[in-house]
């Protein structure tokens, strides 16, 4: 699918024995996995498999119970999220988490936070360096909006956009941090077919900008089309991993998704995965 062979690239993210527990619920169990740099890695799994919990761990919103996470060779487990973001990791949220009362442009400008510096005194006194930075910030934010195709909506309040554009704006905001690794949590949720196609194309352009993408998604068409590799989570544990075609034909995966009754039937193919009852 791409020129990059997973084995050749150095891993950008390494999970080792990762585990998370909520009271009695085991959300993640002993996950050991490596994501090579420069690819589109998808993570799929039924509802409640622990995909979002995994993202929360990697991005620092949740401290893992056990195991280690290495991102760009640094052990980041236990770091505050803003430090991880500064190191070059960004994400979007399954439940849209925009700054609803700020403009589209301001949302993206907030994303540039880790790449700018002015503090309370410099901004309050409007020191010259701060003005230059503010101008630069605004220009970069605009160019990112153009890149994702929201350039015309810069002045709109983020909360007033339709869901599809909010999802794209979340990606733009995340891109503004200049991530080396971008986590997308169900970006196609609530998008129509055309929007989903454009999203797929956007994700591929992002990968083209030297950014590794980890995609959590229930839309199997999208996942199968653009992923270089797929990891299947099942009850918090890796069930299988491999190329899209390998995953598509993996009987264990089909059974996990569709239950025993379907596993034997030949109908359990690509298309039925696509229509799985997830969402």
């Amino acid at each position: 699918m791409t020129a990059i062979t997973p084995q050749a690239a150095e891993p950008i993210l390494e999970l080792d024995g990762l585990g998370v527990q909520f009271g009695g619920v085991v959300a993640l169990r002993d996950i050991t996995y490596q994501v090579p740099g420069g690819i589109i890695q998808s993570i799929i799994g039924p509802n409640g498999a622990g995909k979002t919990t995994l993202f929360n761990c990697i991005s620092g919103l949740l401290a893992p119970g056990t195991g280690s996470i290495r991102f760009r060779r640094q052990r980041i487990a236990g770091w505050a999220p803003h430090r991880i973001a500064a190191l070059g990791l960004s994400r979007t949220f399954q439940q849209v988490a925009l700054f609803a009362h700020m403009s589209v442009l301001e949302n993206v400008m907030v994303g540039r936070h880790p790449r700018s510096r002015s503090g309370f005194l410099a901004t309050g006194l409007r020191l010259p360096g701060m003005r230059r930075e503010e101008r630069e910030l605004r220009e970069r934010a605009r160019s990112i909006l153009d890149f994702v195709g929201l350039g015309d909506l810069a002045a709109a309040a983020a909360g007033t956009l339709p869901l599809g554009q909010q999802k794209i704006l979340e990606i733009a905001r995340a891109l503004a941090t200049e991530p080396r690794l971008l986590l997308l949590d169900e970006p196609a949720g609530g998008l129509n077919t055309r929007e989903t196609e454009q999203l797929g194309e956007l994700i591929q352009r992002i990968r083209g900008r030297d950014t590794t993408v980890i995609l959590v998604e229930h839309d199997m068409n999208l996942v199968m089309d653009i992923s270089d590799r797929i990891l299947v989570l099942y009850f918090g544990h890796p069930l299988a991993s491999g190329t899209p075609s390998a995953i598509k034909d993996n009987p264990e995966v089909i059974q996990a998704y569709l239950g025993d009754d379907w596993a034997e039937s030949s109908a359990a193919s690509y298309t039925s995965l696509d229509n799985h009852p997830g969402r």
Partner: peptide, 19 residues
């Protein structure tokens, strides 16, 4: 930048932290 950060914290703290 600072004012935007403050408002971001108010409106969506977890996203602010992740950004």
């Amino acid at each position: 930048r600072v004012g935007r950060a403050l408002r971001a914290i108010h409106q969506e703290e977890k996203a602010a932290e992740a950004m």
